[in-house]
Design a protein around this nucleic acid. Structure first.
Lengths: 104, 104
DNA sequence: TTGACATATATAGAAATATCGATATAATAG
DNA sequence: CTATTATATCGATATTTCTATATATGTCAA
């Protein structure tokens, strides 16, 4: 876990918003999950296209952002067929919160 | 308190180090405090010149960094004569740690 | 006041990052 | 196989950040 990478990932408003939206996918991505059986969809996260639509940046930009956030450890992804679902890596996030509280 | 500004301030290794060094000034700036009476020096923080020497960047860069970190709320400064002493703004920092834990 | 030193600000070139359109890849449907 | 859809990657350009030099401001001491 590289603190600098995490801080960089969070120092952009769109990326920070994505992380916050993913705290409550049902609320922020209401029409998502059309592709897949219900029991899979939210648990697996939100697909790139839905995030892009909400974030209002180009598809390539959102893909880049998600990749960056995943590399930083904030997100994790699962692929179902042609869709990649991103969700928060809660363990890494709360681990980092703890690091911040004690070490920073 | 603007989270984005705080994340930006912390997304540079030198700036992050400065914040960490200032957790224990006696340890990281052993020869500091030559200018002033003991009871004032550490309580008031560490002067720009000492931070510059440790950080090994130019004087203008360190001044710029410290200003940025102060604007983000991470540091506060006191001026004694011609010296400006910077120290951590512990209240803001732990407030932000709490924000991170609960909101991010 | 003058000169020496500490810090701040202005500016500018270099480096890094952001962001888009285009293209590539991969999965699925027909 | 071919067409379609979702996502990833590439290449180019725009923007931001980094960091230095130069300059200005403020303080102290003689």
């Amino acid at each position: 876990m590289e603190p600098i990478d995490i801080f960089k990932a969070l120092s952009n408003e769109t990326r920070l918003n994505i992380l916050l939206w993913l705290k409550d996918p049902e609320k922020h991505f209401p029409k998502q999950g059309a592709h897949l059986p219900k029991e899979v969809s939210y648990k697996g996260g939100v697909c790139v296209g839905d995030i892009q639509e909400k974030a209002k940046v180009s598809q390539s930009t959102v893909s880049h952002y998600l990749n960056m956030m995943q590399k930083a450890g904030l997100l994790e992804s699962v692929r179902y067929g042609q869709w990649t679902y991103y969700r928060r890596n809660e363990e890494a996030i709360s681990q980092f919160a703890e690091y911040f509280k004690t070490e920073i």
